Amino acid sequence: MFKILIIDDDPIVRMALKNTLQKQGYDVSVASDGEEGIILAKQLQPALIICDWMMSGLDGLEVCRQIKSNPNLATTFFILLTARGAAPGEERDRVQGLDAGADEFVSKPIEVNEIKARVRAGLRLHQLHQDLQNQKQALQILNQDLQTQKQILETELSEAAGYVRSLLPPPLSDTISTEALFLPSIQLGGDCFDYYWIDDEHLAIYLLDVSGHGVGSALLSVSVLNVLRSQSLPKTDFCQPSQVLSTLNQSFQMENHNDKYFTIWYGVYNRIQRRLVYANAGHPPAVLLSHTSEQDIVVQKLDSLSCPIGFLPDDEFEDNTVEIEENSTLYIFSDGVYEVPTLDGEIWGLNALIDLLTRYTKTNNCYLKQVLAAIHSVSARTKFDDDLSILKVSF
């Protein structure tokens, strides 16, 4: 039931309005002057106030100002009663009333049907304001809940990202040394790499890139890493890259892994024979840089034409072999390293990356932090759209 407050110093008007509105089903209270009206308004917080303009003490304008300045009463619909009908200053008076916060004016003598209609209209507007306020509060609560959930999710993602990083191998630093750069585009990415000794002679090296980003891609990436690191693929010679990729392809078909697939470059280095056998499933070519002299460098792209893992269940993969000269460097990377939008609107590209690696190798040890700085310098964006992973193996 709507609460209505009538403020008028005329007892006859008060009684007439109260009886009329009570018959309409409203909860009606009355006050005989402005000060009493303000006190009652604060106590009752009515939906609508009808107040006489001309009263002794506080007049209707001042009552209206104080009511509207109170945050708890700001949406109360305020009707000013005026006897100023068609007087020459009527327009100026209404401006005064509107400036004070009045929502409606009713002229005396009061016509019963008019006041009923004005009250109904005022209460509809008040209800609309209340509904909007309720919706605003509900949205604020929802926003707070979302912020809390976001913080929880970010914490969990950060922990998950830390776990993924903890799985990456420590650097090698003997006759074979390694350096790696792992930069997900978001907290969890689909790139992953590893290297480990299969036996005393053979070092396995690979880098994979799962389609998409986020938790699903990271989970598949970690699953593949664990399978390869534990060498748990059945009937698989892990020294034979084509066989490893074939078994992976049978085990990780898209239809069984939420339509996710992955590319992978997988190689096995024989340290006695100084020979690298490799296979590639839809991954960017690895790049081998070999010194023929202090300033001359031979560049070889270690590529193949096979599909990514998960596309075709019976796809075939082939082994390729390359001899590793002394002081050679192998770079394996995801496509996020070179598919970088530049300031002129072009894509930086694989050839530009190879030129950069070759140029840096001629002048210094080509630390990957320098490579990353160079990529940032040509990129049109501060954050990369794709995961960025690069593995450097120095023989």
Rank of each mutant, 00 (worst) to 15 (best):
L5V: 07
K18G: 12
N19G: 12
K23G: 13
D33Q: 03
K42Q: 15
P46C: 04
G60N: 05
R65P: 01
N72R: 12
L73P: 01
T75F: 04
I79L: 00
L81E: 12
P88Y: 06
R94W: 07
Q96M: 13
D99Q: 15
K108D: 07
P109E: 11
V112N: 09
N113T: 13
I115A: 10
K116L: 08
L125W: 05
H129D: 15
D131K: 07
Q133M: 07
Q133L: 07
Q133S: 14
Q133Y: 08
K136N: 15
K136H: 14
Q137M: 12
Q140N: 13
Q144N: 15
Q149V: 07
S158A: 10
R165L: 03
L168Y: 03
P171L: 05
T175I: 05
Q187T: 13
H202V: 01
S211G: 09
H213T: 09
V215L: 06
A218S: 15
S221V: 14
V224Q: 03
R229M: 04
R229G: 13
S230K: 08
K235F: 07
Q250N: 15
S251D: 13
Q253G: 13
M254G: 11
E255M: 02
R275Q: 15
P285F: 05
P285H: 06
S290M: 03
Q300R: 01
L302C: 00
L305P: 07
Y331Q: 04
S334E: 10
Y338R: 07
E339N: 02
P341Y: 08
D344G: 08
E346T: 12
I354A: 03
Y360V: 06
N364P: 03
S377T: 11
K383Q: 14
L388P: 05
